[in-house]
């Protein structure tokens, strides 16, 4: 899984993750990533051919519930909006994302 970590890649990842970073951070993050991925690379040395993946450990399967409204576990509109930075007329106000750039 070798891949060169440079500032350009860090900038790209930051964009994907929507994390604003400064030019100075690009460099230190690139160094940290390289150090961390070196540790991750050790996995290549393990023979894991044909081994099943573990996504969860309890063995639980398809946990469902009745499709009913649980009124005890429901927010009022006011509660749902209480931590929002901008609201209007009972709605969240969000920044424009289409054609944002």
């Amino acid at each position: 899984m070798k891949q060169k970590i440079d500032k350009q890649l860090v900038r790209h990842i930051a964009e994907l993750a929507q994390i604003p970073i400064t030019a100075k951070e690009e460099e230190s993050l690139a160094n940290d990533f390289a150090a961390t991925l070196k540790v991750v690379d050790q996995l290549q040395k393990v023979d894991a051919k044909g081994v099943k993946l573990t996504y969860q450990v309890t063995g639980l399967k398809n946990i469902t519930r009745e499709d009913e409204v649980n009124k005890k576990n429901m927010f009022t509109q006011k509660q749902a909006l209480i931590n929002a930075s901008h609201t209007y007329d009972g709605f969240f106000v969000v920044k424009r994302v289409i054609d944002a750039k």
Binding site: M1, V40, L43, Q44, V46, A48, V51, K52, L53, T54, Y55
Partner: peptide, 12 residues
């Protein structure tokens, strides 16, 4: 893929 490989080694 590192995520899949990690989940395999997790099994081991």
């Amino acid at each position: 893929h590192p995520y899949s490989l990690a989940q395999k080694v997790r099994t081991l």
